[in-house]
């Protein structure tokens, strides 16, 4: 029973970290396509801001993913990933609500259309958000237990 309690957080950590490293790597080689995907959401009206985000975000995802996998800057990485997942989920929901016929842009240039795959995309994002929050709460609880008084 105790081993299961250790294995589950490990699996969650490897999944979340792995997904973020992979997501960053798929976009880092072609920020142009990612910038287009960002602009298609119509949430950022300035192309220069979309270009800056397209070039920065994949690297931030990679570093956060590595932080989670290697447990370095772990709590900060979990906090950042929770924030990112919250923003991604809201962007996805807003695109679906506005009936935008666009590609997700989540893992580089793949044809994952929001309109047709919305429930699956939403389920995936909410699952990743839940994993990040569970791991973050665990870190805070451990920290509290370890701190004197």
């Amino acid at each position: 029973m105790e081993s299961i309690a250790k294995v589950i957080p490990l699996l969650l950590r490897l999944t979340l970290g792995g997904v973020f490293v992979y997501a960053g790597l798929t976009k880092v080689t072609n920020p142009g396509d990612f910038a287009k995907d960002i602009l298609h959401y119509h949430l950022i009206p300035w192309p220069a801001a979309a270009a800056a985000l397209a070039v920065y975000l994949p690297w931030f995802e990679i570093f956060c993913g590595l932080g989670i996998l290697l447990q370095r800057l772990y709590a900060g990485a979990l906090m950042a990933v929770s924030g990112m997942m919250l923003v991604f989920t809201c962007a996805l929901a807003s695109a679906w609500f506005r009936g935008l016929d666009i590609a997700c842009g989540c893992f580089g240039k793949t044809k994952v259309d929001i309109q047709t795959h919305f429930p699956a995309l939403m389920a995936r994002d909410l699952t990743l958000l839940a994993i990040a929050v569970v791991l973050l709460v665990r870190v805070f609880r451990k920290g509290k237990a370890a701190s004197p008084g």
Partner: peptide, 26 residues
């Protein structure tokens, strides 16, 4: 929060290099 700020900073340098390399594409 400090750790998150460190991660934000770490990502900055490769992002700037990447922006330089991929400028035309962007």
């Amino acid at each position: 929060i400090r750790q998150m700020a460190a991660l934000l900073g770490l990502a900055l340098l490769p992002a700037l290099i990447s922006a330089g390399i991929q400028w035309d594409n962007l």
